[in-house]
Design a protein around this nucleic acid. Structure first.
Length: 407
DNA sequence: CGTCCACAGGAATGACGGGCGG
DNA sequence: CCGCCCGTCATTCCTGTGGACG
């Protein structure tokens, strides 16, 4: 019977210690019934939106806080409760949650808003202004109080500007039968610097700041969730503490803490352990980072890969833009790809930097110009692994650029 | 103390694939 | 099918600049 290597895997999965009760609870999009240490914010947001229950428009609100401080969770929590209350009181309230970064463009944001007032909008083809007009008329006809939640709105403003925000904040002036309130959520506390003062003041009739969690608070959050997520007594005290401590060090990111704990649980389960230990959390940390990088590498475009390979080939503590361009130039020739300008390469390098694959900072070398110093941020072994598996790149991995050999 | 290197990085513009309404 | 508009990627042209060298 025991004829396959899988038997072990399956058997230990079924018979081995079951650690999880419900691992979904540890996903960061899970909305718990209690949000520890956010009672104040919940009350404040709640009292701000409460007027809609009497069919009055509520103030616009701006919410600040770094990632994993519970902004999204609190907003969704309050609004879902508001929604059921509104049914109870028969208030004509509807809300629409849009994550601006995921949604991508102002066009798609307006499309999403339109959809939630019952319009269907083609995912491309119309002008932004047209979509906005349709949204406005559609909204007005629905005769409702409409609450718009724009999550991660900073992402959109930074690369599209705030013109669309201006339109949105002024929309009430042209509505007869509906009213709009806006809840903006930003990860960047300096967002006001990017905003037209008129937009900013109208947007932040109320402001709400989310402080990062400290290690103790994170510990409480994890404790609450782990009661639902794990079997009793499976999670060690030390695993709990180290998860909170690691996440607290990373600007108090609860999302991070939950990820660590979930992956640690998976690691422990796979190892057939009876409990989740500190060591499992440490492995989870590596595991998460490893996956993140591999995923990022795979999704790079052709030229970004070539640029990264160029940095790899230079193989020194820091290379300049010019050096990289030389190697990149050769690599392009080697694989017969058309080459991009140095200007373009420069922005590709910046992208690699924000992804954390590479470290780039501008330095001046005085008489010898001004350039970016670029260093690989990930292990060379990882690059070998990922690119070695790809036929198109395995050759380039071994290729020795000529420009590196002239004295 | 000015020069001048080797780029940085903004702005404007264009090519391209995709999708619309008419 | 056309004319129009979209977002994305890329090019071209450009002005700006920290600081070692002379």
């Amino acid at each position: 019977m025991g004829n396959s290597i899988l038997d072990d895997v399956f058997d230990s999965f079924v018979n081995g210690a079951k650690l999880f009760k419900d691992r979904e609870v540890l996903r960061h999009d899970y909305l718990p019934e209690k949000l520890p240490h956010r009672e104040d914010q919940i009350r404040l947001l709640g009292s701000t939106v409460a007027p809609v229950l009497k069919n009055a428009r509520c103030s616009n609100i701006f919410i600040y806080g770094k990632t994993g401080t519970g902004k999204t969770a609190v907003a969704k929590y309050v609004l879902s409760h508001l929604e059921s209350k509104a049914k109870e009181y028969g208030a004509q309230v509807r809300f629409c949650y849009v994550n601006c970064r995921m949604t991508g463009s102002e066009y798609r944001v307006f499309a999403a808003l339109s959809q939630s007032v019952g319009l269907s909008i083609p995912f491309t083809g119309l002008s932004v202004g047209e979509v906005f007009d349709r949204f406005r008329t559609g909204l007005d006809q629905s005769r409702i109080i409409f609450i718009i939640v724009l999550d991660e709105v900073d992402a959109l403003i930074k690369d599209r500007g705030d013109a669309f925000m201006y339109e949105l904040t002024r929309i009430n002036e042209t509505l007869r039968q509906s009213k709009v309130s806006i809840i903006g959520i930003s990860n960047d506390l300096r967002l006001k610097e990017f905003l037209d003062p008129r937009v900013f003041s109208s947007l932040s009739e109320e402001e709400l700041v989310f402080r990062p969690y400290d290690a103790g608070e994170l510990r409480n959050i994890l404790l609450e969730r782990s009661k639902l997520a794990f079997q009793d007594g499976v999670l060690s005290e030390s695993a709990l503490s180290i998860s909170s401590a690691l996440a607290a060090a990373e600007h108090g990111d609860a999302r991070r803490a939950l990820d660590l704990l979930r992956v640690a649980g998976e690691v422990a389960e796979r190892a057939g352990a009876k409990a989740v230990t500190e060591e499992h959390v440490r492995q989870a940390e590596k595991h998460i980072e490893h996956n993140r990088v591999i995923e990022a590498l795979k999704n790079l475009t052709l030229h970004s890969k070539l640029v990264l390979l160029s940095v790899y080939h230079l193989n020194k503590s820091s290379a300049s833009t010019g050096e990289i361009y030389e190697v990149y130039n050769e690599l392009c020739g080697e694989m017969g790809a058309g080459l991009l300008t140095q200007r373009r390469l420069s922005t590709l390098v910046n992208e690699l930097d924000t992804m954390g694959l590479v470290n780039a900072r501008v330095v001046s070398m005085g008489r010898y110009g001004r350039t970016k110093k670029i260093r690989l941020e990930i292990s060379r072994g990882l690059i070998k692994d990922v690119f070695g598996d790809d036929n198109r790149f395995s050759e380039l991995l071994k290729y020795e650029p000529k420009c590196l050999h002239k004295e």
